[in-house]
Amino acid sequence: MLALFFANIILGLSIALPVGTITVEMTKQGLKNGFMHGWVVGLGGMTIDIALILLLYFGLASVLSIPMIQTSLWLIGAIFLLYIGYESVKNGGNDISLKGEKPTKSLKSSYFNGLLVAISPGNLVFWISIFGPILVNSFDATNTISFLVIGAGILVGILIHDIGLMTLISGTRKVLNPTYIKWASVLAGLVLIGFSVYFFYEFYNSVI
C-alpha cells in the first residue's frame, strides 16, 4: 500500500506540472499578494478535485460524460474563464501588495477564484477520462482501501506541486517591482481569456 501511495504521489505531481488554468491563476495571485493567496487558489482547485474523486467513488462520473452535460460545461467554463481573465487584465495594476505590506485581497476571494477556474470542462473531463479508469478499477465494494490510497496519493502530489510553485513565485516576487507584477497579471489574464476562447470553440463544435 505504501508503494501504491508514493506511486500516485508521483502521478499527481506529474499531472499538476503542465501549465493550466489553475497554475496561471495561482501564479498571478502569488505574484500580486504572496504565497498564501496563490496557495489558497490551489486549495480552491483541490476542493473540486476532491469532489470529483467522491463522484467517481459513488459512480456518478457517467453523468458528467453525457454529451448535453459536457456541452453545458464547455459554455459555463468559457464564461467563468472569460470573466476571470477580463478582471485580471482590467485590474492588473490593482491589489498589488509589496513585501511587508498587508494584502488588500482576502484569502476567501482567492479561494473562490480557484473554485471558479477549476469548474471548467477541461478539468472535469480530464478527471473523468484519466482518473476515472484508474479509480474505478481500484474500487472494490468490499475493500475501499486501494481506492482511497490512490486518491490520497494523487491529491498529495498536487499539493506538493502547489507548495513548490508558490515557494518559487514568492521568492521571485521579492525582486520584482509593481510594474512587472502588473504586466504579469495582465499576461495571466490574456492566457485565461485564451483558454476561454478555446472552450467557446469546443462549445460551438458540440452544438453544430
Rank of each mutant, 00 (worst) to 15 (best):
T23P: 01
W127K: 11
H161E: 06
G44S: 06
L64T: 03
L13N: 07
W127H: 10
F80T: 07
Y86G: 01
P121V: 10
N205G: 00
T27D: 02
G157V: 05
Q29T: 04
G164Q: 02
A152Y: 11
L64H: 09
I145L: 13
S206N: 03
M166L: 15
L64F: 15
T142F: 14
M46H: 05
S146C: 04
L13K: 09
I150Y: 05
A152E: 04
K182Y: 02
Y111I: 07
D95F: 14
A141G: 15
L187E: 02
I15R: 05
V186A: 03
E25W: 13
V19K: 04
L190R: 07
F131T: 07
T71M: 12
L135C: 04
L115G: 01
V136F: 09
W74H: 15
M166H: 09
G85P: 03
I128W: 06
F112I: 13
Y198A: 08
T142I: 11
L54D: 00
I160T: 05
I76H: 08
S185W: 09
G34W: 06
S88C: 02
F203Q: 03
I84L: 15
L148G: 03
T142W: 10
I96S: 00
F199C: 05
G38M: 00
I79F: 10
L2A: 09
T172F: 14
A118G: 03
L56M: 14
N123T: 15
T21L: 09
E101G: 06
R173H: 01
M1G: 05
P121M: 12
I145N: 10
T167L: 14
T23Y: 08
I154F: 12
V117S: 01
G114D: 03
L115T: 04
N94V: 11
I160V: 14
S206G: 01
L82E: 07
L148D: 08
V24E: 05
V41A: 01
G164R: 08
E101H: 12
V89F: 13
T104V: 05
K90D: 06
M1W: 08
I150A: 02
V89Q: 06
T47M: 12
W127P: 00
G34H: 07
L73S: 05
I15W: 07
N113Q: 11
F35I: 02
L73Y: 11
I22R: 08
A152I: 13
L55W: 12
I158Q: 03
I154S: 01
I130H: 09
I163D: 00
A141T: 13
A51N: 02
F112D: 04
V117P: 00
I66Q: 11
F131C: 05
T23D: 07
L82W: 12
Y86C: 00
L82Y: 13
W39S: 11
L54R: 07
W39D: 00
I134V: 14
L2H: 13
L73A: 06
M26A: 09
L11E: 11
G12T: 09
